[in-house]
């Protein structure tokens, strides 16, 4: 006997249309949601008047000018750059090495190693900041130093390294280890295997980890706020601005903060496309 064809609860066409509306609609809605505050900031940075409210009194770039005349903002820009560059280098190198270990090697302490290396990922940043602040305060009292640029960088590295680890780990996971055997068989020393085979093949992952690291550090607020002492970066500078009364200067700073992000994300996408 033949079983009846299963009867759908609505006809296939309606179902497909409904699914389409829901899916495409949700993507569109989420994208709008994500960009509302970003576009609001960008828009207000061009406000001519003194307050970031509508309607515009006029469109001008004067707040960008004010930004570069404001020494606090200039210092913040410089500090942000230093912290982000240094933290990116450390986090990417340490994270990539740890990713290779976590994915490729089977050894006694693999699980504790991976757990420890990735733990800060699921630790709220604010609490990480507080715990580290306590630590640096105690250490600072013992060894006589204050929190500042260096402690902020350490905090950023602790927080960002696990992200780099995860991103590179995906690349290592898809990496065929026999390629290293093949290189060795061709006569390559350990160093040459890394130079000619392992690193070039992991490079896309390491590169995206680097970009990710830079942007996480560049835009980071919590850790910098806790650990940088009196040193200001762009995000903490903006935060202090929100507290002391708004002016379109702060949207202008925010827009400046966006720029490297946009450039790097586009660059990363280009690279990936070229590689594919």
């Amino acid at each position: 006997m033949a079983y009846p064809t299963p009867t759908p609860w609505m006809n296939a066409k309606t179902e497909a249309q409904l699914a389409g509306v829901l899916l495409y609609g949700s993507v569109a809605a989420v994208l709008i949601f994500f960009y509302v505050p970003i576009f609001t900031l960008i828009a207000f940075s061009f406000q001519e008047g003194r307050y970031p409210t509508l309607p515009f009194e006029g469109v001008s770039l004067k707040w960008y000018g004010a930004l570069f005349e404001n020494s606090g903002a200039r210092d913040a820009l410089w500090n942000s750059t230093i912290i982000a560059v240094v933290a990116t280098v450390f986090a990417t190198v340490i994270g990539s090495a740890a990713a290779i270990v976590a994915v490729r090697y089977k050894f006694r302490f693999r699980l504790p190693f991976t757990g420890l290396s990735a733990a800060p990922l699921a630790f709220p940043q604010l609490l990480l900041g507080i715990v580290l602040l306590l630590w640096f305060s105690v250490l600072g009292r013992a060894f006589d130093f204050n929190t500042g640029l260096v402690t902020a960088i350490i905090g950023h590295v602790v927080y960002i390294t696990p992200f780099a680890l995860v991103i590179v780990a995906v690349q290592v996971f898809n990496f065929d280890a026999t390629l290293e055997d093949a290189a060795r068989d061709c006569g390559a020393t350990t160093f040459e295997v890394y130079r000619y085979v392992t690193l070039p093949l992991l490079w896309p992952g390491i590169f995206s980890a680097g970009i990710f690291a830079f942007l996480l550090s560049w835009g980071n607020f919590y850790l910098t706020y806790s650990l940088a002492g009196s040193t200001r970066t762009l995000p903490t500078f903006v935060f202090s601005g929100i507290a002391t009364g708004s002016s379109p200067l702060y949207p202008a700073i925010a827009t400046v903060v966006f720029i490297p992000g946009i450039l790097l994300v586009i660059l990363a996408d280009r690279m990936r496309r070229k590689a594919a």
């Binding site: 505050p37 970003i38 900031l41 835009g219 903060v257 992000g261």
Partner: peptide, 8 residues
């Protein structure tokens, strides 16, 4: 990747 403070 854009900072939460700014977006907030």
């Amino acid at each position: 990747l854009t900072d939460a403070t700014l977006k907030t």
